[in-house]
Design a protein around this nucleic acid. Structure first.
Length: 522
RNA sequence: GCCCCCGUCGUCUAGCGGCCUAGGACGUCGCCCUCUCACGGCGGUAACGCCGGUUCAAAUCCGGUCGGGGGUACCA
């Protein structure tokens, strides 16, 4: 008896869109999680639906509070708000699977009595042993077939995994196993035929169910497994569209089969639509793993990326807003986002491009905004004391216009302005730059001339400084500007890379500027 | 082994039968601007994996092949 299950148009078109993000709080959140969250969020917002945030902490061993806190922290930083979930609650609370044990126990009981689920008494060893035997049998049959010169019927390759041994046990067999004191796990009886769904990003996908073994829904000790818990919660929370990673693609037929059973026992109203997002890849052709430094989402915040930039870049991994455009805001993404436009092929994470996209978002901010956002980093990195003194705040405000367009990340503000805030006693020159620009005879001569020219300046302004230095170094000494100003730059700011020199000297002030020039003279 | 997914410049992508001598962005290279570094401007570089088929016409449709990835758990 063949039956074919298809979930096309299972969710009524009139139903409001409800999507979810369901991370497991294990380890530090991954950029792939952010991309998945972003697409779900954008999808919900585009359709005026709800975005549900649920914590899949069924694995008690690996779940940690620290991980949970960092995921929430991350989502808040990114500005991806959720309508139901941790901290905000909602009609389907609790949103932590660790608190939903009764719900799963009830679901299991109902499934069990429906006949769609049976108890399996096999031990892992027995299952594996049979699979191995089948494999060997196949190898032997194949060899015999080859030896016979391809005569006879070609042996069919066995399907690995659980073989359905306990599918049709008699009451006597069950009683015997029970009497033996064997433990058992509940398994879903996969229907015959095939399972087809119209994947939102890949189109029609079909699996023959003979390749999908009956799967366990809970451990022998009763702990529910992901295979049960995830669809049960999606059903109860009335999720209409499941947008998730490609790694879950092959478990979809099992979930659709489970949905059929859940509908039968009154837990699910409809089967959701599924869409499988491509992987975010790292170096080589491997999925970006936790070992890759680029994988850690919160590290981008620590490094001074702005959420607008990270999100824009991540959106580009699998989606594009237009043929000739790749810079856009979250609002623009929400407006334009269509799951049908999402690419099915995996994308490699390119840090250079991520930084470039981030830079243009930083440059789109006002100088005041960049200042506000950079301040926490300046404090964190010890560039500016915390709390900030009025004098420092004022100096920062004056200096920011010179660095705002030069930074691609917020942390770079500190790199560029450190020289302005560092106490004179702690001010040191970069070794290499000093050796190259300051220590030479020419460098020393330049610094002496610069010192003499600036000492008598009447008005300490960028314009006056520029005139005086150009006159003394370029015109009178006949030096090339890059040589002349380079030496002064290193002496005053400590590095060959700095904000514009004359403005920097003005901000530094006469006393400190002269002091530094003098300090660089040996 | 078996099942499923994927295949356009180095990278992310546009392309959904003629608009493609394949467009944009990042990268890279050269030039300009220039007190350094950036920014900005101009220009160059570089791709439809392969083979068949359908068609007047294919990057676009079909088949095969090769390559990559994932799954094949009492993990998620």
């Amino acid at each position: 008896m063949k039956s074919t299950v298809s979930n096309s148009a299972s969710v009524p078109m009139s139903a409001p869109v409800r999507v979810r993000m369901a991370p497991s709080p294990t380890g530090s959140p991954h950029v792939g999680l952010v991309r998945t969250a972003l697409f779900n969020w954008a999808f919900a917002r585009h359709h005026g639906g709800q975005f549900v945030f649920r914590i899949e902490d069924t694995d008690k061993e690996r779940s940690t509070d620290e991980s949970l806190a960092s995921i929430i922290d991350l989502m808040r930083w990114l500005g991806l708000d959720w309508d139901e979930g941790p901290e905000v609650g909602g009609p389907h609370a609790p949103y932590f699977q660790s608190q939903r044990g009764d719900i799963y126990a009830d679901a299991l009981a109902r499934l069990q009595s429906s006949g769609r689920v049976y108890r399996c008494y096999c031990t892992t060893e027995e299952t594996e042993g049979r699979a191995l035997a089948k494999k060997e049998e196949y190898a032997a049959a194949k060899a015999a077939f080859a030896a016979a010169g391809g005569q006879g019927t070609k042996p069919e390759a066995p399907v690995m995994g659980y073989d359905g041994f306990c599918r049709d046990l008699t009451d006597e067999q069950i009683a015997a196993f029970e009497a033996e004191g064997r433990a058992s796990v509940p398994r879903l009886r996969m229907p015959d035929g095939s399972i087809t769904w119209n994947d939102l990003v890949r189109g029609e996908v079909t699996f023959e169910t003979k390749h999908v073994p009956d799967f366990a829904l809970a451990r022998a000790n009763g702990d529910p497994l992901y295979t049960l818990v995830n669809p049960v919660d999606d059903a109860l929370m009335e999720i209409t569209h499941v947008l998730r990673g490609e790694d879950l693609l092959s478990s979809t037929p099992r979930q659709i089969a489970l949905y059929e059973a859940l509908k039968e026992v009154g837990i699910a109203k409809a089967t959701p639509e599924f869409g499988h997002l491509p992987y975010v890849m790292g170096e080589g052709n491997k999925k970006l793993s936790k070992r890759d430094p680029e994988a850690h989402a919160l590290a981008y915040r620590d490094q001074g990326f702005v959420p607008e930039g990270l999100l824009n870049y991540l959106a580009l991994l699998g989606w594009s807003i237009a043929a000739d455009r790749d810079i856009f805001s979250l609002e623009e993404m929400v407006e334009a986002f269509d799951i049908k436009d999402v690419n099915a092929n995996p994308a490699k994470f390119d840090l250079k491009k991520c930084e470039a996209i981030n830079a243009t978002h930083v440059h789109q901010l006002s100088v005041e905004e960049i200042t506000d956002r950079a301040l926490p980093y300046l404090k964190r990195d010890g560039v500016i004391s915390d709390p900030v003194s009025d004098a420092d705040a004022q100096l920062l405000e004056l200096a920011m216009p010179f660095v705002a367009e030069r930074v691609s990340k917020l942390t770079e503000v500190g790199d560029l302005l450190h020289f302005l805030f560092v106490p004179e006693a702690d001010f040191v020159l970069d070794e290499a730059d000093k050796a190259k620009m300051v220590d030479s005879d020419e460098g020393q001569a330049v610094l002496q001339a610069a010192y003499d020219a600036l000492r008598s300046l009447e008005v300490w302004s960028a314009a006056q400084i520029s005139d005086a230095l150009t006159q003394a170094l370029v015109e009178e000494m006949g030096l090339k500007p890059r040589v002349a100003f380079g030496a002064v730059r290193v002496a005053a700011t400590g590095r060959r890379v700095s904000p514009p020199l004359f403005e920097s000297l003005e901000l530094l002030g006469r006393e400190r500027s002269l002091g530094r020039l003098q300090g660089a003279l040996s």
